[in-house]
Design a protein around this nucleic acid. Structure first.
Lengths: 222, 222, 222, 222
DNA sequence: GATGAATGAGATTTCATTCAT
DNA sequence: GATGAATGAAATCTCATTCAT
């Protein structure tokens, strides 16, 4: 009986903790799909399997919910990724390839990528969130890409004329993939659909062709 | 007196003719800025310098206004561009460069580029419009890019392994520039702001490096 | 030329005078058909062949228009009918028959009967008009019926136990016919439609059977 | 504690169950009094003791509310009445008398009679409802009256020359009473007011005088 | 006088938020 | 804690009325 009570308690504790998470997931999905304003809190609650009232036990307001959705899905992954950067020992072309495909698997392909679409759609309505996103994602993201490119330059692997624009060249295909996943690509028949990893591979090759000092034309594949 | 009466009539007529356009412009700007749902029709009317009621003289409903905003700003420019394509006599690298910078000047830099952001934000809420946009913009746009690349291949200037993905490589920076203009870039201080023509030039160079058969490393500038 | 000018002037004068009449006719028809609140002044104007603005040159407001519609169509016909009563020389059964069929031809069958439907529908919203209608129609109408019945009593033709209720017995079929014409009967196929004069004839026979002192069962027809 | 919780739940449930009925009652009263278009939903809600928003929890729109008001108050009473017809053993004159006075008590005197006024006022604006009313009330009502009259004929009690018009003769005073109750009679001082049961008794007598084969002149009172 | 574009008060309808149960 | 009935502020939309032409 003690065990049973404990079990119950644990399970209830877990659910209690999990509830906001389910709500945040539901909210992310719906905000990304329909936009902030067009999403009704009742839908979010329903998708999370709770009632409208319950949502307000966990979040002060719809706006607060939105902010927590953004915060929750931005929780600094860059610490981890900077550590991976430090540990990486291969050449910089491989590093860039690894970085982009890892990004797709861990972010692009997951609901977290919806946050970028959300910020694109709602940045004017939530300027403080836009700033926050800028600080939490854009700045560290660009910094990480810069470190990778700079590493290539420092090791004599890359030649970079204009670092800022080189960074944009890395970001552009990522933005494109996320927009495709969350909007433009959703009304295209499946067999015509874009294969993200293939696109990333191709883009990286083109980029590396431009970056690699020897300009061997094989995009650094060698 | 005839003249005076005519003048008055003409002036009023001119207003009447102009109103829908003014309202569509105001609506485009606000829908792009705040999203469809977060934009109040009264704001649209105010920005066009009329009252709420006047808007409904010209548009049946907010939804109808939205649809007409999209239709109005999509009026097939591809006829004109296909004609330019036919007339172009230079090499295909120049053609691609010209095409992208012309696109920026005529679309990207104008409010019309907001339509793309709108479709990205609202495609799930207006599926018929998304389909329409697909037919009117995505398909002919990709077809035009395909023609340019194919022209390069046919003339022995380009080498294209996978045409579909090559097209995406052209589109991705365009999407990126529009998102920057309408969202992400708007909270970045001016002196750090991205110069679109410079970005386009750089991107084209990188692309051409990958495309041009000789792989001269000068991106076709040589 | 003088003649022509005169003609023009006369015609214009006539039209100017006629305009409010056309508006009143249009308004009566639409108010009866759709109700006061559900009728838009623009519809009234359109049906009268003028613009919305013109209506307001002749009537201060929609409410004023409504009041004038009622006043216009109530213009005391009872003077004329009381004179007919005075002149009538036949027996009282014939008089009642004549009275009811004349009423149908002059009022019941004409748009004027719509006023009764209007008063039934809108009396709570226009209490002063209801009172006016009471004074102008109900009271003199009941008085006229009373005079006819009383004439029959005085001449030894009718026996009336309760004058008030005898009057209601005359009115009830009139109300029924007007409601049939303006509402209930309008969704009945034509061949099933009620023939008002036949109904009046029948009703009068039944009434007279009750009224005529000899109770001959032929309703006074002899 | 169990009881208390149940109580609460039950009480709230009871409110929830009762709401639509309260709203329908309020709506019937106001629609009859002011007409559909002139009644504001907020008034309906206020009369039912709830707020505007609550009304829309139970009814999709004002129009839907109106339709349900009509449907609710038309719930086929004719089954019951046809059964009464079958069970009735007295003579047909009594049957007709009973039928009309029962109608007044169960319908005419109750708010349900307002439906007829509503249909008269709004039939053009809601043609489907007019048809529905035709099928649910007019047709079965006329059929019931026809059965009663036919019974009299079959039993040798009544003589009916034209059945259709005989039926109208029964209906006309009913229409008159309802119009009096809901419109015309409401601005008449109380002491002059019409006593419906007395009017019905008188009308029935007159009718029976015409119907009864012996033409005894006592209206069947024997 | 006639017009009809423009207005804005007022109606319907939605939905985030509250709170009794 | 959880619920969902109730609320009312705010949005869309209508239409009587005005007024420049």
């Amino acid at each position: 009986m003690q065990a049973k009570a404990d079990d119950g308690h644990v399970k209830r504790e877990r659910r209690k903790q999990a509830r906001p998470g389910e709500l945040l997931d539901a909210a992310l999905a719906l905000f990304v799909e329909k936009g902030y304003a067009a999403t009704r809190v009742e839908e979010v609650a329903a998708r999370a399997g709770v009632s409208k009232g319950t949502l307000f036990l966990y979040f002060e307001s719809k706006e607060e919910l939105f902010k927590e959705v953004v915060h929750e899905n931005l929780a600094g992954r860059f610490v981890e990724w900077n550590e991976e950067f430090e540990r990486f020992t291969g050449d910089s072309a491989d590093m860039l390839r690894h970085c982009l495909s890892a990004w797709w698997e861990r972010i692009g392909a997951t609901p977290a990528s919806g946050i970028t679409k959300l910020m694109i759609s709602e940045s004017h309505n939530f300027p403080e969130l836009a700033t926050y996103y800028q600080h939490e994602v854009m700045v560290p993201g660009q910094a990480l890409i810069r470190r990778i490119l700079q590493r290539g330059v420092d090791r004599g692997e890359f030649r970079v004329d204009d670092m800022d624009y080189a960074i944009y060249s890395v970001i552009a295909p990522m933005i494109f993939l996320m927009m495709d996943k969350h909007s433009l690509g959703t009304c295209v028949p499946a067999q015509q659909a874009l294969d993200p990893l293939r696109f990333i591979a191709m883009q990286t090759d083109v980029l590396l062709q431009g970056l690699c000092v020897r300009g061997t034309g094989d995009g650094g594949r060698g």
